[in-house]
């Protein structure tokens, strides 16, 4: 398994690492059993994401997808950011190995979660309908469990 040059760049030099103090929306997705936890915080002004930061526990692909997705949503309106798909994130990274596609799903969920949190805080109501992710997106290679 080899990562693309773009993945390695975002892994070795991740952009927007950290947590925004007084963030407008925060979400943490994933769980340690799967190997990845992503925490995303956003700052929103006039319906536009003006800042985004992440903290990630996970593999190279998880760190790279977190990094590039913060770059991709800064400057976007909430609606535009919600339209960002995991496939677009993976494509922006020059592709991900099949077993690592779930990392890009995690990034998509983290963005959605942070926006949902923001809407709850400001309007008292979260996203009407969360995007559903088919289990196929969470690709896991067959594994043995005794």
């Amino acid at each position: 398994m080899q990562y693309s040059a773009k993945v390695m760049d975002h892994f070795a030099n991740p952009r927007n690492v950290g947590e925004i103090t007084e963030a407008d929306g925060v979400a943490e997705v994933g769980n340690p059993a799967c190997g990845d936890i992503m925490k995303m915080s956003i700052k929103v002004k006039d319906n536009v994401i003006v800042d985004a930061k992440f903290k990630t526990f996970g593999c190279g692909a998880a760190i790279a997808t977190s990094s590039i997705s913060t770059e991709m949503i800064i400057g976007k309106t909430l609606d535009e950011a919600l339209q960002l798909t995991n496939k677009a994130v993976a494509e922006a990274l020059g592709g991900l190995p099949p077993a690592k596609m779930h990392c890009s799903v995690l990034a998509e969920e983290a963005i959605e979660g942070a926006i949902d949190d923001y809407l709850k805080k400001t309007t008292g109501k979260g996203l009407e309908k969360k995007k559903t992710h088919s289990h196929d997106d969470h690709h896991h290679e067959p594994d043995f469990h005794p």
Partner: peptide, 23 residues
């Protein structure tokens, strides 16, 4: 032999290590 699978090692898990630490 299992570097392509995402799960924590079955060996480490069998020794009772917590899933997050096993990663």
């Amino acid at each position: 032999c299992t570097s392509r699978s995402l799960k924590a090692s079955h060996v480490i898990m069998a020794t009772g290590v917590d899933a997050a630490i096993a990663q």
